[in-house]
Amino acid sequence: MNKSLCAGALVLALSSFSSQADTLLGVYAGAQAWDMETTGGFSDDNSNVDFNFEDETKGSFYVALEHPVPLLPNIKLQRTGLDTNGQTLLSSSMTYGGELFSANTSVNTNLDLVSTDYIVYYELFDNDLVSFDLGVNAKHLDGDIYLEAQNDATQNAAQDFSGFVPMLYSRVAVGVPFTGLGAYLEGSFLAFDDNTISDYQAAVTYGLLDNIAIDATLQLGYRQLKMELDDLDGIYTDFEFSGAFVGVEVHF
């Protein structure tokens, strides 16, 4: 009898500790494989040239830290690779990086770009059925764009660029009781003068694992990142990255 009581007390204690630990500190980590299609173009003089870009499967990784401290926001860090290659036949001459590429010249381009999101947010509403987060995102874009004439490798130019873009951030998630199913819509947005950038993703989720130590959730969704930026460190862009993704999130 005493052994049974002790075992029961131990289980209750562990459950209580896990619940308190999750209340005090929650860590979320996730990884996504994104089937990314890229459209659009770029320039360094506001005369953007569109390219035919290759489809790529890219990785996105994130970690978020949530806590109950009043007035102190939660934090999330997300990193996404956006590099791809493209080509086009110029219908008119193009000057890039001080190099003149004549009309009717086939040119190749290599886009090497990384997007890193530094997000701070508040949980305005949070329960098992509905949650709503609101905050700000400092999106850091760090890239290099290389251009080369297809039939003359000596004719080439490259420019790198880097900068922060401040954005609004929000996330809404819903759950279906007793099924493990859920869905969320998450996004960041900015519109200012000639600059418009949006980064949205929507997904359905399914709980793969749920115990006192760790939760694991499968994600299946769609993401779209649009970048219409006017003179970001000397580069003008009109890019759209979009496609389906599959991911896994763990909660400690």
Results as ranks from 00 to 15, higher is better:
residue 104 N to H: 13
residue 104 N to I: 01
residue 104 N to G: 12
residue 104 N to A: 13
residue 105 T to F: 14
residue 105 T to S: 13
residue 106 S to I: 05
residue 107 V to K: 02
residue 107 V to N: 07
residue 107 V to D: 06
residue 107 V to R: 01
residue 107 V to T: 06
residue 108 N to H: 11
residue 108 N to Y: 14
residue 108 N to G: 07
residue 109 T to F: 02
residue 109 T to R: 00
residue 109 T to W: 00
residue 110 N to S: 13
residue 110 N to L: 03
residue 110 N to Q: 12
residue 110 N to I: 11
residue 110 N to F: 05
residue 110 N to V: 08
residue 111 L to H: 00
residue 112 D to L: 09
residue 112 D to M: 10
residue 113 L to C: 02
residue 113 L to R: 02
residue 113 L to T: 10
residue 115 S to Q: 14
residue 115 S to P: 01
residue 116 T to R: 01
residue 117 D to I: 02
residue 117 D to P: 12
residue 118 Y to Q: 00
residue 118 Y to H: 10
residue 120 V to Q: 05
residue 120 V to N: 04
residue 120 V to L: 05
residue 121 Y to P: 07
residue 122 Y to S: 02
residue 122 Y to F: 10
residue 122 Y to I: 01
residue 122 Y to R: 00
residue 122 Y to A: 01
residue 122 Y to Q: 10
residue 123 E to D: 14
residue 123 E to V: 00
residue 123 E to P: 14
residue 123 E to T: 13
residue 123 E to Q: 15
residue 124 L to V: 08
residue 124 L to S: 12
residue 124 L to Q: 01
residue 125 F to S: 03
residue 125 F to I: 14
residue 125 F to D: 06
residue 125 F to P: 04
residue 125 F to V: 07
residue 125 F to G: 03
residue 126 D to L: 11
residue 126 D to R: 14
residue 127 N to P: 00
residue 127 N to C: 07
residue 128 D to P: 06
residue 128 D to R: 09
residue 129 L to V: 13
residue 130 V to C: 07
residue 131 S to E: 09
residue 131 S to A: 13
residue 131 S to H: 08
residue 132 F to Q: 12
residue 132 F to P: 01
residue 132 F to D: 02
residue 133 D to I: 11
residue 133 D to T: 03
residue 133 D to L: 08
residue 136 V to P: 05
residue 136 V to L: 15
residue 136 V to G: 15
residue 136 V to K: 06
residue 137 N to V: 05
residue 137 N to M: 02
residue 138 A to Q: 09
residue 139 K to V: 09
residue 139 K to H: 12
residue 139 K to L: 14
residue 139 K to Y: 06
residue 141 L to I: 09
residue 141 L to D: 03
residue 141 L to R: 11
residue 141 L to G: 11
residue 142 D to S: 15
residue 143 G to D: 10
residue 144 D to S: 15
residue 144 D to T: 15
residue 144 D to G: 13
residue 145 I to Q: 08
residue 145 I to S: 12
residue 146 Y to E: 11
residue 146 Y to G: 08
residue 146 Y to R: 14
residue 147 L to N: 12
residue 147 L to K: 10
residue 147 L to I: 14
residue 148 E to P: 00
residue 148 E to D: 05
residue 148 E to C: 03
residue 151 N to R: 00
residue 151 N to T: 04
residue 151 N to W: 05
residue 151 N to Y: 14
residue 152 D to E: 05
residue 152 D to Q: 13
residue 153 A to R: 11
residue 153 A to S: 12
residue 154 T to G: 06
residue 154 T to H: 02
residue 155 Q to K: 09
residue 155 Q to F: 00
residue 155 Q to N: 13
residue 157 A to P: 04
residue 157 A to L: 00
residue 158 A to Q: 11
residue 158 A to S: 15
